[in-house]
Simulated scan of single mutants.
Amino acid sequence: MKQTLCWSGADLNLIENQQKIHETIQSGHLVIFPTETVYGIGANALDPQASKRIYQAKGRPSDNPLIVHISNKEDVYQYVRFVSETAETLMAAFWPGPLTLIFEKNERIPLETTGGLSTVAIRLPSNPIARQVIDLAGVPIAAPSANISGKPSSTLFQHVFDDFNGRVDIIIDGGPSEIGLESTVIDMTSEIPTILRPGFITKKMIESALNMPIYDLSDTKPTGNVKSPGMKYTHYKPKGDVTILKGDIEAMRDYVRSHHLNHPNQTYAVICESEYVTLFDVPVRALGSVHDQKEMAHNLFAALRDMDLWAVDYIFIHHLSTDDLGYALMNRLEKAAGYQIIEL
């Protein structure tokens, strides 16, 4: 097992550490760093072997494309064939920030980075540590979420340390992720932009910026090659059996109580809004206030990871409102539950 260097964000001010970042990325090896969405596991996006190392470290299927991170908006033109006026508008409105745009790639981006596709997903993060790492690397960085494939994404240093200590060269601790959900992904390769993965930047926000309606295919379940991560494979799943319960919170309480009585030798937990914590007779992990979707997004993946720490057999999650950011929250929760939803 290799020795993993663990630094705080402040450690990047040291010249020797800056040089180490540059050498690590340039040599095709792996660095985990914070972004405003979740932690990313990064390598040189221009190096086919480096991208392969990401897939190997995560146990990620090789046809699941990686997102390329840049540190300046102008960099996008070095790696794509064409940037439309519509894409320019979205870049001006939401970059830097949690928005990924899909373009037709040029020859500089290898197929190993794009999952074999002729398109490339590119993002300009707003997190200053992420931007500094990309600048120090001197190349764009391919960086999917820093979690073992299929597990909940990482929003805390402890998450990435647990998954990758000894498997990567450097882990940078940037504290809790500000947003807690991966970026919104939009396909810009057709005339009308299409959301492939929902996130903090909502459909309403995008349509407002463009002054036009757009498509949303994020709730489809494709089986062939996909242009965006998060569309095809199992994601975000704790070890226990996860079920989403949709309906009145009192009906959910009664359902959980009945299930518990019928299976007394099993362990249980509930994930729900803070206002409902005291209603249940089993351990409860609060997401946040029903009135604060940003708080719930911030806590979502940590709540799912806590289920494994609690060694829970059955996990019941309250179905959230799908208004605004709630749509992205439910997108992640439905995947965590394998689309197992019970109407009460």
Rank of each mutant, 00 (worst) to 15 (best):
Y314Q: 15
R332C: 13
V120Q: 04
V68R: 00
V270Q: 03
H263W: 09
I186T: 11
M307Y: 02
G40D: 11
L136E: 10
C272V: 12
L279V: 02
T220P: 00
N64D: 15
D169M: 05
K73T: 12
K239D: 03
V290L: 15
N225D: 14
H319N: 10
S71C: 15
T37P: 09
L5V: 14
L344H: 08
P229H: 05
R167Q: 15
I67F: 06
G97D: 11
G338P: 09
I129F: 01
T35A: 07
R108G: 06
S27H: 11
L309Y: 14
S145G: 07
K335W: 03
T223K: 13
L66K: 02
H22N: 15
A328S: 08
Y39Q: 00
I25N: 08
R305Y: 02
M252P: 06
T37S: 15
G40W: 03
N64P: 07
H235N: 09
I25H: 06
S274V: 05
L325C: 08
P61D: 07
A92P: 01
T243N: 09
G175W: 00
A209K: 01
V160W: 06
R108Q: 15
C6V: 14
K294T: 13
A43Q: 02
M212W: 07
V277Y: 04
G28K: 10
T184H: 00
G40R: 05
G9H: 02
L111K: 10
A328M: 02
L99T: 03
V185R: 01
E295S: 12
N17W: 01
G174W: 00
L300M: 12
Q132N: 13
H259D: 03
I315H: 04
K58M: 03
L344F: 04
E250W: 02
K73Y: 02
E107T: 12
T100D: 09
D11T: 00
G230Y: 08
H259P: 00
T86R: 12
G224Y: 02
D47H: 14
I15M: 08
Y314W: 13
I206L: 10
C272I: 08
L320F: 14
A121H: 02
G224Q: 12
Y236M: 09
P48E: 10
T100F: 08
P222L: 07
W95G: 12
G230C: 10
G150V: 11
R53L: 12
A269K: 03
D323A: 15
L245V: 10
I186R: 06
R285G: 07
A336E: 07
F157L: 13
P222F: 05
M296I: 15
L99F: 02
K294G: 10
W95F: 11
Q19T: 12
Q78Y: 03
D173L: 07
T202P: 07
P125H: 04
L46F: 10
D163S: 10
T24C: 13
L245N: 08
A92L: 12
P125K: 04
G9T: 11
S208R: 13
V76L: 05
L181E: 05
L66S: 02
S218E: 11
I54V: 12
M212D: 11
N299Q: 13
V282C: 03
L261H: 14
T322V: 08
V139W: 04
Y77V: 14
A302F: 06
S177I: 08
M296P: 04
L99R: 02
I134G: 03
P96C: 11
F94K: 02
